[in-house]
Amino acid sequence: MTTVLDVTDFSVEFRTRSGTVKALDRVAFRIGRGETMALVGESGSGKSVTAYALLGLLDAAGRITGGRASLEGVELTTASPAALAAIRGRRAAMIFQNPRAALNPIRPIGQQIADVVRRHAGLSRRDATSRAVEMLREVGIPDPVRRAGAYPFELSGGMCQRVMIAIAVATRPALLIADEPTTGLDVTTQAVVMDIMAKLAGETGMATLLITHDLALAAERSGRIAVMHAGHIVEEAATRALLAAPRHPYTRRLLAATPTAAGDLAELRSIPGNLPDLRRADLPPCRFAARCPQHLEACEAPMVWRDIAPAHRIACWNPA
């Protein structure tokens, strides 16, 4: 499998009034052609920051403090803003939670797709318009010719997200980053939107980075899962392997807290404690240490990532 995105030792910090937030620490992962990898974690884990930092969309307070990230061999961390802007449109695309807010409210959706196509593929106005209709059909919007003239407020949330996907994949990018793409949508709509993303990835060989807080969604829709906690990837493995035999204490606790279609409330366990304050100068090497039931003295040693099974990587000295 050709690697599309290769991230190594990627670190990001935010400078704030009350101290430097070490938001990401040595994050590393790879995504291959046609593969879907899920980045799973609770709020504050750094999963969205990863996406924004990769595409050069950090706000002024944030900066990449180390590591590399290459997209199809192009180094992103040292690319100029102009080069990143070009990559964002053509080779890497991103969709967000709340698609309606990401669409221009006063332009018909067909034109918004056509704009992107014209800018990045250099098509004529007429060709771009017919390409837009084609894209709408591709993302399963019924009656695309008529719908191309619709404004975002006339469409449901699920429809808007499909339009966002159409815009994102119009230039046939190598990588699609989907940041909580179905949060806020109904489960029935979520299923349809995820189907469309899977279909497009299958047809075009696009790699997908699915960022979600929902382990079950990741379980259904990804080939591999990386679990994030407080700016670290704590465990990464093939989806089936990770869910069948989670090894990191945080992954295990996250699973134990997730309601399922069977079982009782009494069987669910919360995760005690809170995320550590990422502004602290003396952050422990393992950022889960204070909440961990399996904490050992050995855990004070510098954190290393190691393979405990083929393609199953964890950051823990005392795995389950």
Binding site: T188, V192, R221
Partner: peptide, 23 residues
């Protein structure tokens, strides 16, 4: 049936046949 089938499951077993299309 469609609603229940659309809920993602941790075991990853999808019931695609019951997918509810449309709005």
């Amino acid at each position: 049936r469609g609603l229940v089938a659309a809920v993602p499951r941790l075991d990853g077993l999808r019931a695609d046949a019951l997918r509810l299309a449309g709005d």
